[in-house]
Measured scan of single mutants.
Amino acid sequence: MGTYKLILNGKTLKGETTTEAVDAATAEKVFKQYANDNGVDGEWTYDDATKTFTVTE
């Protein structure tokens, strides 16, 4: 398990959240659902060194 971070750079929603997941693929699924639930759809990037996903609208 590891802690993964999501940085939201949406047009109307900005912020950060974290999740505990077994791997990056699992964290990505959780974060994409979170972003979708909050109406954020954009370009995704992932930094393996910091376990950080970023979505920018």
Rank of each mutant, 00 (worst) to 15 (best):
N9V: 14
I7G: 02
T18Q: 11
K11V: 12
K5P: 01
T45P: 00
D47W: 04
E16T: 14
T56V: 07
Y4C: 01
D23K: 03
T45Q: 10
D48G: 10
D37I: 11
A25K: 11
A27F: 00
N38A: 13
D48S: 13
D37A: 13
Y46A: 01
T19E: 04
A21H: 03
T17K: 11
T56M: 07
T19S: 05
V22P: 15
L13R: 08
D47L: 04
A35T: 05
V55M: 05
N38R: 15
T56C: 06
W44H: 01
N36R: 15
T52L: 04
N9D: 09
G39V: 04
T12Y: 13
L8Q: 02
Y4L: 01
E57S: 08
T54W: 08
A49S: 11
A49K: 12
V30D: 05
T56A: 06
T50P: 02
K5S: 06
F53Q: 00
K32M: 09
K11G: 07
L6Y: 02
E43C: 11
A21V: 04
Y34C: 04
T45C: 08
T54L: 06
M1L: 13
V55F: 05
A35G: 03
G2Y: 14
N9G: 04
A25W: 11
T12E: 09
G39N: 10
Y4Q: 00
Y34K: 03
T52Q: 04
E20N: 10
T50W: 04
T45A: 12
T54N: 05
T56S: 09
K51P: 00
G39C: 07
K11R: 13
N38Q: 13
K32D: 02
T18S: 11
K29Y: 10
K51T: 04
Y34T: 03
Y34I: 07
M1H: 10
T52N: 02
L6K: 00
L6E: 00
T19V: 14
G10F: 13
N9W: 12
V22E: 13
G15C: 12
A27I: 01
T18H: 09
A24Y: 12
A35W: 03
G39W: 06
G15A: 12
Y46H: 02
Y4F: 08
L6S: 01
L13A: 08
T18G: 04
D23Q: 03
T12C: 13
D37N: 09
A21P: 01
D41Q: 13
V22R: 10
T56L: 07
F31G: 00
T54K: 06
F53R: 00
A35L: 09
V22D: 08
T12M: 12
F31N: 00
A27N: 00
F53L: 01
M1Q: 09
